[in-house]
């Protein structure tokens, strides 16, 4: 439904995108996940035919972004990161305006936006500029949908939005997906990755990986441990002084660590065993516990855990400096 091949874009000295290739399948929710400055917005602008790439080709709904740009504009819905509706028009006027521009009417496609628009309909005579953040977001989404697009581009729709409203917003996206709309959505929130069918992690204009969230987590080959103790701040400092610890970062109520390749010592001591991985991890955990106890830490809890997307992003981004 969306296809990018070797897309690159440079702004003066800044390489915004380097050799980006990926495909989005029909009906998919595809997430483009990365921090500010990763190139997400540039990619959206290229795909929505607003700017030209320096190199590479891209198509949306089978249409080329350069040659068929007019046709693409009729078929896609685009919600930019910055609120871009008419602040001096009312809620209702904005929606009518966008319907008219696309040669349709609100009535004709009302079904598609009903669930979302109904939440702001009580305020339909209010000027868009006077709406709260959450309401603006719902109006912008309604306006992006009113011409019944086949592909929806949402550039950071949940940035600065609180966790409860973010969950609600993702619920709306799932509903739209069920109505057959393909969705490309970008976000800096790593926890939203799990709500996408497939994701691409992006940083500094490069794609780090593309896959389903589950498979990306499976691709994390190192042992990941979560460590907590009473004094978390001191624990962070102490963990970093342990030679075997490769990386150590705070993750809410625990610290996540990866270890340098230290299986050799275990193998030396257990050369007869069949290298049972579980035993090995137990060995590592006990070893670490002893080390931390020697540093006077109390209530130490160490567990092997499955990596989240944020762990994966941090691991993959190390190679993208």
């Amino acid at each position: 439904m969306i296809s990018c091949k070797n897309i690159s874009k440079k702004y003066k000295k800044v390489q915004a995108l380097s050799d980006i290739s990926f495909e989005v399948k029909p009906g998919e929710i595809f997430g483009l996940i990365g921090p500010d400055g990763a190139g997400k917005t540039t990619l959206f602008r290229i795909l929505t035919t607003l700017i030209l790439a320096d190199e590479g080709v891209a198509s949306v709904d089978g249409l080329d972004v350069v040659n068929d740009y007019k046709l693409i504009r009729e078929r896609v819905g685009y919600m930019p990161g910055r609120f871009s509706l008419y602040q001096d028009l009312s809620v209702e006027e904005n929606l009518n305006f966008f319907a008219t521009v696309f040669n349709t009417t609100v009535e004709e496609n009302y079904e598609l936006v009903r669930d979302i628009y109904q939440q702001i309909e009580p305020f339909k005579t209010r000027k868009a500029g006077k709406l709260s953040g959450g309401m603006k977001q719902k109006l912008a989404l309604s306006c992006a949908l009113i011409h019944k697009p086949t592909v929806l581009f949402l550039d950071e729709p949940t940035t600065g939005v609180d966790p409860v409203s973010r969950k609600e917003f993702w619920g709306m996206l799932k509903n739209l997906q069920q109505q057959g709309i393909t969705i490309l959505v970008s976000t800096p929130y790593m926890d939203e990755a799990s709500l996408c069918d497939r994701i691409a992690l992006i940083q500094k204009g490069r794609l780090l990986t593309i896959d389903s969230p589950g498979k990306i987590a499976d691709g994390f080959k190192k042992t990941l441990l979560s460590v907590s103790a009473e004094n978390m701040s001191l624990l962070l400092t102490d963990l970093r002084t342990i030679p075997e610890v490769e990386n150590c970062y705070a993750f809410g109520d625990s610290h996540h660590i990866t270890l340098k390749n230290r299986t050799s010592r275990y193998e030396q001591e257990h050369s007869d065993s069949k290298g049972k991985k579980d035993n090995e991890i137990e060995f590592i955990i006990n070893d670490l516990k002893v080390t931390l106890e020697a540093k006077n830490h109390l209530n130490i809890i160490i567990k092997e855990i499955k990596p989240g997307i944020e762990d994966c992003f941090m691991e993959l981004s190390k190679n993208n400096l």
């Binding site: 921090p35 940035t159 600065g160 800096p188 790593m190 970062y249 705070a250 992003f313 941090m314 981004s317």
Partner: peptide
């Protein structure tokens, strides 16, 4: 006021440190 919005995961943590 939301000092780490949109910041990458590593930098976000360095900021808290």
């Amino acid at each position: 006021d939301e000092p780490t919005g949109g910041v990458d995961p590593v930098t976000r943590r360095q900021f808290w440190e």
